[in-house]
Amino acid sequence: MATAPEALLAEAASDDGLVARPPSRARVTLRRFLAHPTAVAGLAVVALLFVLAFAGPHLTRWSYSDIDYTALRSGPSARHWWGTNRIGQDVFAQTVRGLQKSLIIGLLVGVAATAGAATVGACAGYFGGWTDRLLTFVTDLLLIFPSFLVISVVSPRLKGGGWLVFALLLALFGWMITARVVRSMAISLREREFVRAARYMAVGPLRIIARHIVPNVASFLIIDATIAVGSAVMSETALSYFGFGVQPPDVSLGTLIADGTGAAITYPWMFFFAAGLLVVFVLAVNLVGDGLRDAIDPTSARRRPGRRRAR
């Protein structure tokens, strides 16, 4: 082993450095993801939604809080593209403003909760012993905490951070069940031979978790995250309804939908634009999730032509 570097360098020199770099997992996964048309479409839709949410306010002369007393409950027109609501606010301005909030809350909660769950669950499962006991205790503790009460007590005191901190609070109470599942999966993975092999090759425990444990529970994590995105938007709505979270005159997709539900039949523009965007958003996230899962899992049922079993 002491002679290794010299010998290797000598051999490499004779190789003329012609060899291409072997593709790493990140690049293989990216390539597989990009080869998945619906996943790319989903990603494009999410990107377009972001563009709409952040460029939209600059396209219209109305701000989300402006009130046009000359047009109450008026339908879509050149003056108000998506119409106005019952007090004369511009629906387009409000919807894009709400979309900003909901996109960020949804994605942030989905990603943060899942990442937290993966970290806690994988560490508890892989290390076992006292780490496991401590982390499981914390998980169970948070699980029995009345999250609604905690958020309602804490959020009024967080004037500075506002809805961003609110999103983190939602994430804080959204990871426990996932973490418990990840923990049990990690316990069985820990005994698998490839994890043992990595340990005997002097791969550090945190690297083993990142390289072997988490990718092998990724399918579950991704499905969980895509569901969490949708439910985060809805639970934000529920909390906002009770006066926590996003407060008027500020809006989110959730509050817009809640306000517009009653008028869905009589004044459809108040409801359907916001609801439609939410559906499009959740759908796009699901497509991205599916694509990512297939890209990470090489045994996924999708078969691409030209890639047969190696002989």
Binding site: M201, V203, G204, R211, P215, I296
Partner: peptide
């Protein structure tokens, strides 16, 4: 068992490189 001892989620190049990276 060669199936169980290779991480199914890693490309072969990364599997072979693993001990090198560990060092």
């Amino acid at each position: 068992d060669p199936m169980a001892s290779l991480d199914p989620r890693l490309p072969v190049g990364d599997i072979v490189a693993e001990p090198l990276r560990a060092q």
